[in-house]
Structures are given as structure tokens and as C-alpha cells.
């Protein structure tokens, strides 16, 4: 059963630690004359430092949920608070600005800019963020060393393997010190050994305090996360609950 969590007053001290709060979130798509309800009322909270895997079969609505969490899409109804701020009713430009400052993305297909070097790709979020990094280049270089690509900073994506490209994407997601990293099937294009390497890196970032939400259909990948939420037909089927 979905865990409906309304915060009692005595837990208010923990509100500050909330990164994500969803309450009765729905998303309806209009196709021709038909209304398709993809999300039918999702409620959960994610605390700072959690590593959450959202699992579900294709068509379950997990990708739509991730897009709403990443501010790439808007809920039809319900509440979404990110970092304690209600973002349900922000317009496109305001969403862009929030996106730049609060979220980091890791995609299944890596999505690096083909004509920019690994280092420049890592620095890309800095171009559109209000946060300014005085030593952006040094920071990007450190992040690349963190993911084990210290010797390939000037490589163009075409000269990097899939696993290496995803490492660059990881470093990029961390660049703006986001409140939340959203990973959409990050290992979907990788072989099992490389997948393990990427998941180990995500785990390492999580241990350092980074909040991560991962979307996957793969149980092995989901097993890396401390908390698993299973989505079925647009509703939460099970939630393993917060872990300290």
C-alpha cells in the first residue's frame, strides 16, 4: 500500500531536511479526444542524503514521474515541493532557472555535446546557472578526476567509450552542486561490468551526502539504492521506506 505521509507537528524539525515532497500528484495527457491518466496520485517524500530507486515496468509512469521531479514537465494536479519551495505552478522560464540551480541529470544516452571536450561538457551547467564558480575549470577538472577521467579531460565525446561518456555525464550532474541528482536508466546502454562501475560511483556520491533519485526497470540496478519505490499503473505499489 502507498505510504500516505502527512507530517505531524513533532516531526517539523525534519522538514528542513526534505528535498522532495509530492502530495497526490497526477499527470494527464490528452491524446485526440481521450484523456490518459499516467500518474494517478503519487505521494512521497525524499530526505536529504537518500538514494531512491523508482522501479516500474515500461508504461508504468515512472519516466513521467522523473520528468516532473526534474522540472522538465509539470503535474496536472497535486503538490510538488522541491527544496521546500512549491514548484507546481512555476512558468517555463522560472522552471528553467530552478532546473539550473537545483537538479543534475544523468540520462540513459549520456547526451554530451559532441563538439565540446569532456572538461567543457562538465562545465556546461555553469553556463546557465545563477551560481557562479570562480574556479569553474578547476572544479570540473577535480570532478573528472573523481570519476577517473583525469587523463581524458580534453577528449571529445566521440573518442570516449560509453562508460567513460556516462562518467563525464556524472561529473556534469555534480558540477552545480545540485540538491538532487536524477538518473534515468543510467546503465541502460552499458554492459554489466561498466554498469557496476557507474552504480558504484553513484553510491560513492550518495555516501558523500548527495541525494539521488534513480529510475530503472532493472532490479539489479535498483538494488544499489537504499530505498525502492515501485510504481504500477500510475500509483505507488510499494515503498521500502526511509533509511537513516
Amino acid at each position: 500500500m502507498p505510504k500516505q505521509s502527512r507530517k505531524p507537528a513533532q516531526e517539523r524539525s525534519q522538514e528542513r531536511a526534505l528535498v522532495v515532497r509530492l502530495a497526490d500528484l497526477t499527470r494527464t495527457f490528452r491524446q485526440a479526444d481521450q484523456e490518459v491518466r499516467v500518474l494517478k496520485g503519487i505521494s512521497f517524500e525524499v530526505r536529504r542524503g537518500e538514494f531512491v530507486a523508482i522501479q516500474g515496468a515500461s508504461g508504468s509512469g515512472k519516466s513521467t514521474l522523473l520528468q516532473i521531479l526534474g522540472l522538465l514537465d509539470r503535474a496536472s494536479d497535486g503538490l510538488y515541493e522541491l527544496d521546500g519551495q512549491n514548484v507546481s505552478s512555476l512558468d517555463d522560464e522560472a522552471l528553467s532557472a530552478r532546473r539550473a540551480d537545483t537538479t543534475g541529470f544523468v540520462f540513459q544516452n549520456f547526451y554530451l555535446i559532441p563538439y565540446a571536450t569532456a572538461l567543457e561538457n562538465v562545465m556546461l551547467p555553469g553556463l546557465y546557472s545563477g551560481k557562479t564558480h570562480k574556479r569553474g575549470q578547476e572544479r570540473a577538472a577535480l570532478l573528472l578526476e573523481d570519476v577517473g577521467l583525469g587523463d581524458r579531460m580534453d577528449f571529445l565525446p566521440a573518442r570516449l567509450s560509453g562508460g567513460q561518456q556516462q562518467r563525464v555525464a556524472l561529473a556534469r550532474a555534480l558540477y552545480n552542486e545540485p540538491s538532487l541528482i536524477l538518473a534515468d536508466e543510467p546503465t541502460g546502454q552499458l554492459d554489466s561490468q561498466t554498469s557496476r562501475d557507474i552504480m558504484d560511483l553513484l553510491n560513492k556520491f550518495n555516501r558523500e551526502g548527495q541525494t539521488i533519485i534513480l529510475v530503472t526497470h532493472d532490479a539489479e540496478t535498483a538494488a544499489y539504492a537504499g530505498r525502492r519505490i515501485l510504481i504500477k499503473d500510475g500509483l505507488i505499489d510499494s515503498d521500502s521506506g526511509h533509511k537513516p
Partner: peptide, 11 residues
């Protein structure tokens, strides 16, 4: 990608 990273339409 640029938009996902927060680039406004103007950029």
C-alpha cells in the same frame, strides 16, 4: 540537453 540543464529559451 541545454534546456534540461536550465538554459532559458533566450539563451
Amino acid at each position: 540537453l541545454r534546456k534540461a540543464l536550465g538554459a532559458p529559451g533566450l539563451a
